[in-house]
Design a protein around this nucleic acid. Structure first.
Lengths: 346, 346
DNA sequence: CTGAAAGCGCTAACAG
DNA sequence: CTGTTAGCGCTTTCAG
């Protein structure tokens, strides 16, 4: 009949030590005899003692929690990122608080940050930042932006790369290497940093080869928006290659193109972005670039935890995440290029 | 130069009231004059006051946080559920703590629960429960199981339906209605409750029509596992209809079938499970059943919050989530059935 | 409707 | 290596 949850005083009594010694053991502090440590651990186990995080936070001023401002979509990209962030946070010995912000709400992320700060977190990661003006907000903990320049004034703002620029560039170059004269780009919503990065990577690849930069196509990450873009594009036979900023948009795009009678990859090549493994099993299997979600989350959290625990140290060097192009069946040389290899070509 | 964060005493001083009155205003308690309320709010705003949740939790014994034990996969189903849980939790005025448990770890969910309890939560939701023995664990807060019978001994264990049984049944009946003599089932990992529910719904539909129950096919939710099952199945021409327990498995299955020269839906019909909208844009567009993630999360959180805030009340009635079949292009009548309608048939 | 006093369970600082 | 003394910032009594 447990009357109520055991407290550190109960553990101390049973172990025959002071409360402070219990505290030391529980926090892995030095200067505790092995004997005392052993007795405390045994007593805690016996009582089923569970430390009260609220009391610890109040007394120490540190919560051992991290907050993440995420995106509230079930898309493969955002979901993957969240999963890997959670794992990295847990591995670092922190608890995780999550708040989603619906896309398109410019005030959203500021509000989410404020809520997280009030709930009590030692640091925050903004998972998929959108573009917005400087938000006036007193933020006294380090904030990590995954894949975007900082737009808040915080004690310490950090940024970890998600390699979007390099990946977009690799995707575009793959198409150029195949012989396409230029590559169209189906972009995401303009106010996302993820969109900007990909556009810039695409532009850089085009510029490096002296290729003409065609007008941008616009989507919203959904397959439906890719489909719409595809319908608009299908009649333009000069288009031979498209780099879509997301796998799902690529899938919608291909569907529209084929409905309109254009073959993929024979007439038009399409490359996606993200690396969702399911799209290896559609026709044609989607060529894409794999986002380094795990590496980005791990590196980012490492930076954040460092900034929290050793605020005066130099920040450690962040490893650049790997760039991985996954070539499958949705890309091929352009028709003109192929004709040259056939017998009936002039 | 803010020396340090303002406290409720600072607000009280500025508003010319006691700390208790500030507390009353912040907690929406009655018996505060409108005048006092207004002054407190103004003072809080002016100072940029942020309530300290740790102190509140320590003093009140309530954290206003809910914990969720989730699954750590980026699949559409689990990700959707998490997104909707987060929203429901936020709408209910609670903060959310998340811990993922890698699939297949039987101790995982017990450990996650213990960690959540230590971090401080007023209730827990176990999002995608797996089958396991009774876990001995002192859990003194209500626990909600989404789509599974309770397997922990908690003060109060709740269950909210995700309608998996009904959806599986609807998927199977759709195939039977089309004229298929029986329906094969590609199931998920056996230790998931989600797998069990779907199997039972499928069996119920078969039994109700007196259809023969073929042996189960096994997958692990991934498209790759669906592909493997499809290769094994392709040579058996007696198979005309398959209900897959997940959209991605269905996609892999269809891919293997087509590679082996079997047409979908002409030779074999396939229905998926989940309702990921992207699969409306593949060939053939996938017939599937839509899981009521939003409704299940909303109802479940409502139950959980009720159990926390009014522990002595009767639990409110849970609405049954809707059953939605999405018929697209991957299902059709079986070959035998179709022949009967053609001119050259006898 | 309002306030004063007394902790919630832990860690910080300091002294042994 | 160990213990003592004070709080952390809020909410809870219970009196006005």
């Amino acid at each position: 009949m447990a009357s109520s949850a055991p407290r550190s005083a109960d553990v101390a009594r049973l172990a025959g030590v002071s409360r402070k010694t219990v505290s030391r053991v529980l926090n892995d502090e030095p200067y505790v005899s092995d004997e005392a440590r052993r007795r405390v651990l045994a007593a805690a186990g016996e009582l089923g003692y569970r430390l009260n995080h609220a009391a610890r936070a109040l007394a120490s001023g540190r919560t051992r929690s991290l907050g993440v401002v995420a995106l509230g979509t079930a898309g493969y990209g955002t979901a993957s990122l969240l999963v890997h962030i959670e794992q990295a946070v847990r591995d670092a010995g922190y608890a995780l608080r999550v708040i989603n912000t619906p896309d398109g709400d410019p005030e959203g992320i500021a509000g989410a940050l404020a809520a997280l700060l009030e709930q009590g977190v030692d640091g925050v990661v903004v998972s998929e930042p959108v573009v917005q003006g400087e938000v006036p907000l007193r933020v006294d903990v380090p904030v990590l932006f995954l894949g975007a320049p900082p737009s808040f004034t915080a004690t310490r703002t950090l940024t970890a790369s998600v390699a979007a620029h390099e990946l977009a560039r690799a995707a575009t170059e793959h198409l150029l290497d195949l012989g396409h004269h230029t590559v169209h780009h189906l972009a995401g919503p303009r106010h996302w940093y993820a969109t900007k990065d990909r556009i810039q990577g695409w532009q850089a690849a085009l510029a490096a080869r002296g290729a003409h930069e065609p007008p941008l196509l616009n989507g919203d990450w959904s397959a439906a928006s890719g489909y719409a873009a595809g319908r608009a594009l299908a009649s333009d036979t000069s288009v031979t290659a498209v780099f879509a900023a997301g796998d799902e948009m690529a899938i919608g795009l291909i569907h529209a193109l084929r409905e309109a009678g254009r073959r993929v990859p024979e007439d038009i090549s399409v490359v996606g972005f993200d690396g969702n493994p399911v799209f290896a099993y559609v026709s044609p299997p989607l060529t894409t670039v794999r986002q380094p979600f795990a590496a980005a989350a791990r590196e980012g959290i490492r930076l954040l935890v460092h900034a929290i625990e050793k605020p005066d140290d130099e920040l450690p060097q962040a490893d650049e995440p790997p760039v991985e192009l996954v070539v499958r069946g949705s890309t091929a040389p352009p028709p003109s290029h192929r004709d040259r290899l056939l017998p009936h070509s002039r």
